[in-house]
Design a protein around this nucleic acid. Structure first.
Length: 614
RNA sequence: GCUGGCGUGGCUCAGUUGGCAGAGCGGUUGAUUCGUAAUCAACAGGCCGGGGGUUCGAGUCCCCCCGCCAGCUCCA
């Protein structure tokens, strides 16, 4: 590796950034630097590139606003960010300014030098620069690491593990994307910093492709499509409380229909529990202590009530209405339960994050000996359902949170049971420490949407605590009273969020079984309206959703609008079709499919609907 | 909730230094009856998010509130 630049740079440093006397500087310079020519995997190369770009961005910001305190600047999926603390508030125009300054730093081809210094020397150096956040980071490093590494490029130096590129000139294709607030160390009690997000790629082509992908994803935004396709809306009068329009209801109802079929086949019974229940129930369940901040309350006849944020207490009351035998188990009670949660206003997001939503819940009461088997069945159920939609997902196991009920031994037992079930199924999973529900550990299924964000949808929670609190019992084979175990689970998660994800997943082009309008009839002129009516009636009789475009518009316009509405099939009917009892079929993706008899078309689309093809 | 940005017909957006609220799309009506992604014309449509203030005069300037957007935190 060529080190020429490094030599020069020794003299290029700004005085105040000079290493304190006596500090042991290891100038094996580019040792921690990585040349782009090395045959590292592209992903690692991209990460290194992005990390270096983050440093260049911080350097540029410091040049433009010298009083800036820099916090941290890690690589994230598809990019990087850096957090800054400064008086000036960044504007979108500033991003261009910063980019221009970055271009200068890149043109300077500054060598990037790794140095290993003692913590004390680092403290001295960052103290001189008033980099308080770095000092805080150093305090935490103090214990473990004697030597810490810093990376230097020109006048800029940052506490960093590396690795980095050899010099700033190797960064070519980058873009600063947006500005946002972020708490220091993610802690709401700490100062709010200004975060700049950006990305960088090895080639111009990759960068362009990535930016194009983002644009494409933005076009699929369910909030946009929800309006364009007239599926739902959220009015100013009810932030976080979505309205479902007639077309959105069709999707919702189809999802529920599918859900009910599947549950019936798997031995679930459906229930419905009230939305409002007395407040003392919520004390008993632990929600008052652990979930109060997210709950809505009300008064009826001077009694305090709570609007349910979860369905479990209702299901528990239903369980307790009679004595159960071990022979009843697994007792599977499913509920499309409408819950309300007071989410922070800033977190609301279309259908993805709302304040009222319908969980496709179920509470399964089992013997302790049935845990493995039943959890396995639920895992299979989730997989079967997601397959129908063609979703990618990953699984996480969440363990005991700080804010929990029940003792440690029980938690351990429950967590191990879930772990075992996952391993039995051979599923890879990530461990999510401390992220369980307050009453039990859980397995979460995360779906990936078009922007590569992940959303928690299905979750399976094992609960020993609620049965205890509600003193649930069953009678075992020896006529003794025993405590059942309870599983809480959802598949879609929340219908609202799931629909939001579906909208983005399909880009509005719903598979025919879900499409609000499955067939759009397009008569070429008024003369053929009667025939169109006849065709429509025939299809409707087959339980298909048909609309006729009766407007006095030209065919081209009717087709265009049906295309924009992403209607799966357009049937163009004129004199030629009427004569032979046929329809001219156009598919939204495949275009003109030619002429079919009405019977042929009906059979084709029926099959597509029945098989839930997508 | 926090930080920053933004609110003008249904939608996308114009609107000089404060001086008569506009366009395109959509809608309605009329004409047109058409063969695989936009026919023509006319008309209607706005408490410029809400409330205070400054001013002879506020869409425009100031303050408060509400909502939305990007994130943070939190979550189905």
């Amino acid at each position: 590796m060529e080190k020429e630049g490094c030599k020069n740079s020794q003299f290029g440093w700004n005085r105040e950034y000079l290493v304190p006397l006596g500090m042991r500087v290891f100038l094996f310079i580019c040792k921690g630097a990585i040349s782009l020519s090395t045959n590292l995997k592209t992903k690692n190369q991209e990460e290194i590139l992005r990390h270096t770009t983050a440093h260049i961005m911080a350097q540029a910001v410091l040049r433009l606003w010298p009083d800036t305190k820099i916090a941290i600047g890690p690589v994230i999926k598809n990019g990087f960010y850096y957090d800054f603390d400064l008086e000036h508030r960044f504007t979108p125009e500033d991003l261009q300014l910063i980019e221009a300054e970055m271009e200068k730093i890149i043109a300077e081809k500054q060598p990037i030098i790794r140095q290993e210094i003692t913590n004390r020397d680092a403290v001295e150096m960052f103290a001189r620069q008033n980099q308080d956040y770095k000092l805080e980071l150093l305090e935490e490093l103090e214990e473990g690491e004697e030597k810490i590494s810093v990376y230097r490029q020109g006048e800029f130096v940052d506490l960093c593990r590396g690795p980095h590129l050899e010099n700033t000139g190797q960064v070519r294709h980058f873009k600063l994307q947006n500005i946002a607030g972020a708490y220091w160390r993610g802690d709401p009690r700490r100062p709010m910093l200004q975060r700049i997000y950006g990305t960088a790629f090895l080639s111009k082509k990759d960068l362009k492709a990535h930016l194009r992908r983002l644009e494409e994803a933005a076009k699929r935004d369910h909030r946009l499509l929800g309006r364009e396709l007239d599926l739902f809306s959220i009015q100013e009068e009810g932030p976080g409380f979505p309205f479902f329009h007639p077309k959105g209801m069709i999707i919702r109802n189809e999802l529920e229909k599918f859900w009910r079929q599947e549950h019936r086949q798997r031995g679930y019974q459906e229930i419905k529990t009230p939305i409002l229940l007395r407040r003392d129930l919520w004390h008993r369940s632990g929600h008052w202590d652990h979930f109060r901040d997210n709950m809505y309350f009300s008064q009826i006849d001077e009694e305090d009530y709570a609007i349910k944020p979860m369905n479990c207490p209702g299901a528990l009351l239903l369980y307790k209405r009679k004595l159960h035998s071990y022979r009843d188990f697994p007792l599977r009670l499913a509920e499309m339960g409408l819950v309300h949660r007071h989410e922070l206003s800033g977190t609301l997001h279309g259908l993805m994050r709302v304040r009222a939503f319908t969980q496709d819940d179920a509470h399964i009461f089992i013997l302790p000996s049935q845990i493995q088997d039943e959890i396995g069945k639920v895992i299979d159920f989730v997989d079967d359902v997601y397959k129908v939609f063609g979703f990618k997902y990953h699984v996480e196991l969440s363990t005991k949170p700080e804010n929990a009920i029940g003792d440690d031994a029980v938690w351990e037992q429950a967590t191990e049971a879930l772990q075992l079930a996952l391993e039995t199924k051979g599923l890879d999973y990530a461990l999510n420490e401390g992220d369980g529900a307050f009453y039990g550990p859980k397995i979460d299924f995360h779906l990936e949407d078009s922007l590569e964000r992940t959303w928690q949808c299905a979750t399976i929670q094992l609960d020993f605590a609620m049965p205890e609190r509600f003193d649930l019992i069953y009678i075992d084979q020896d006529d003794r009273r025993q405590r059942p175990v309870m599983i809480h689970r959802v598949l879609y998660g929340a219908l609202e969020r799931f629909i939001g994800i579906l909208i983005e997943h399909y880009g509005g082009a719903f598979p025919t079984w879900l499409a609000p309008v499955q067939v759009q009839l397009i008569p070429i002129g008024d003369d053929y309206l009667p025939y169109a009516e006849k065709v429509a009636a025939s299809l409707s009789a087959q339980d298909l959703r048909v609309e006729i475009d009766r407007r006095a518009e030209k065919m081209g316009k009717k087709i265009r609008e049906a295309q924009l509405q992403q209607i799966p099939y357009m049937l163009i009917v004129g004199g030629r079709e009427e004569e032979k009892g046929q329809v001219a079929v156009r598919h939204r993706r495949e275009g003109d499919l030619g002429v079919l008899s009405l019977a042929e078309f009906t059979a084709k689309i029926k099959e597509e609907v029945d098989l839930k093809k997508y």
